[in-house]
Design a protein around this nucleic acid. Structure first.
Lengths: 122, 122
DNA sequence: CAAACATATGAACAAGTGCTCATATGATAA
DNA sequence: TTATCATATGAGCACTTGTTCATATGTTTG
């Protein structure tokens, strides 16, 4: 039995396809979960949003201060905060004129940590 | 000392800004790392690529079989495999006419697992 | 009330993305 | 070699995305 025996007849014997399709169908998440997963990672796929999250790692901050820390306009930051809030990665707390933003939970930290691990290996 | 005292003078006292800016500057990764991080998450931000990865969770598979499992064209899958390979999330091994793809390392699993955890909480 | 401040939002536009189609490359078999 | 199979790739197109600019909403202060 060769090392790759189960693969050598790929694209030829329909049984292999059936087995694979069955296994994949069993473990593949629902369509909606796949979509949600992609949507979630899309959020992390922009360096401005990642920078915002790194700011929020340090403190609960208002929009103006995030804009200052990242040297960007208030409008640009506000648009991104809305996206982050919609994905429930951050939350806002109003206090008078200000709205202070903070991380919604610790998943954000662990997801980014996992990403950094992949990047830093070489 | 009120619960949020360090925030109430946000946007007013320059000292607070300086402290925040300093703290942020210390912990914020380099520009290139931020860029790479965003690029990495961008890869996961597409449900076709996520589906491909779920197939590769199950077996080492050739392009044709991935296309069959996902009911997509060979060309579309091939384009995505190139992107996944460039990010070193998967690797290809040629065996005759076929090229078998598999996960490059276990980071892929843990990153996706972290993402699912965030989604499934409610 | 009006004025000032903090934040949010809609339109518009440039840049990027994923798929399709046609074609090219690479490997094997006749 | 030629034919065939497996995979890769370039161009084109519809669609999405992030920013800017102008403006709106909401809160506090005078």
């Amino acid at each position: 039995m060769s090392k790759h025996e189960h693969n050598t007849d790929c694209c030829e014997t329909p049984e292999v396809h059936k087995d694979l399709l069955k296994k994949v169908a069993e473990t593949m998440p629902e369509e909606t979960e796949l979509y949600d997963l992609a949507e979630l990672f899309k959020i992390f796929g922009d360096s401005t949003r990642i920078r915002i999250l790194f700011v929020l790692f340090e403190a609960e901050v208002c929009v103006f201060d995030i804009a200052a820390a990242l040297n960007m306009t208030q409008s640009a930051i506000s648009h991104q905060l809305r996206i982050l809030k919609q994905s429930r990665l951050i939350k806002g707390r109003r206090e008078g004129k200000h709205i202070f933003y903070s991380l919604a939970d610790d998943h954000v930290r662990s997801i980014i940590a996992e990403g950094r691990e992949h990047i830093e290996e070489d």
